[in-house]
């Protein structure tokens, strides 16, 4: 029951880029969701195969391990766009105007630093498992049925790459907000206090209830 989006939009360039990027990010999170569903089906096949056909799915654990990074990491940028990563907003929640945008600029910059360092580290981690000269380009394989692991490892730098683009865009939007002392800037998640956020969640639930009633 997560909150609806708190990101405003208009005709400015920064907002247009925001929405284009959102399309990519939404596709990525949807792939993550479909993968959760796939994980469920995988278990159904495994259990069904074992109990009814005495033929368990070969490499069931290996396949789960391949799918998990897609679920866990692929949508990281979408969640950032929606302001969904958890934080303590006791201090930020008390800030207003330029002070708030400055604080957001600072933490976004810090997150950009983390994202870029991890992009580097996870890319190298991928490269260590990848060798174009080997069968299936594989230099690292899973335990049971020997699946190449590089595709699953590649998920992380790809997701972080999109996150880096998103963070740069947000830096731009926050600096505009700071420069013009905007009250409600576009392309960044607005700091709803927890109560407003909860109200949006509640609305979402209510709208579903209503749909059901109709």
């Amino acid at each position: 029951m997560a909150a609806g989006s708190l990101v405003l939009s208009d005709d400015s360039i920064v907002s247009r880029i925001d929405r284009s990027l959102l399309r990519v990010e939404y596709a990525m999170i949807l792939v993550g969701g479909l993968t959760v569903f796939g994980l469920m089906l995988l278990a159904v096949f495994s259990v069904g195969g074992r109990n009814f056909l005495n033929a368990p799915l070969p490499g069931y654990v290996d396949w789960i391990e391949q799918l998990m990074p897609v679920i866990a990491v692929f949508g990281v940028s979408y969640v950032r766009r929606e302001g969904g990563h958890i934080r303590m907003d006791i201090v930020v929640g008390a800030l207003k105007g330029r002070a708030l945008w400055l604080a957001e600029l600072a933490t976004t910059l810090a997150i950009l630093l983390v994202a870029m360092l991890l992009l580097w580290g996870s890319w190298e981690h991928f490269l260590r498992s990848f060798d174009i000269s080997q069968p299936m380009w594989s230099r690292d394989s899973s335990m049971d049925i020997g699946l190449p692991i590089w595709p699953a490892k590649l998920v992380v730098p790809v997701a972080l790459g999109v996150l880096v683009v998103r963070l740069c865009l947000q830096l731009w939007a926050y600096s505009l907000a700071f420069k013009h002392n905007q009250a409600r800037p576009v392309a960044v998640p607005l700091l709803a206090d927890v109560a407003t956020q909860a109200a949006m969640e509640a609305k979402q639930v209510s709208s579903r209830e209503q749909e059901e009633a109709n």
Partner: peptide
Amino acid sequence: AVGTAGQVPHAKVASQALSLIPTFIL
């Protein structure tokens, strides 16, 4: 340091036990 940290997102997440979390949410 970056090489060590860069392993974690894949290595720690690719786990059968953790696959329970998205399933329970679903």
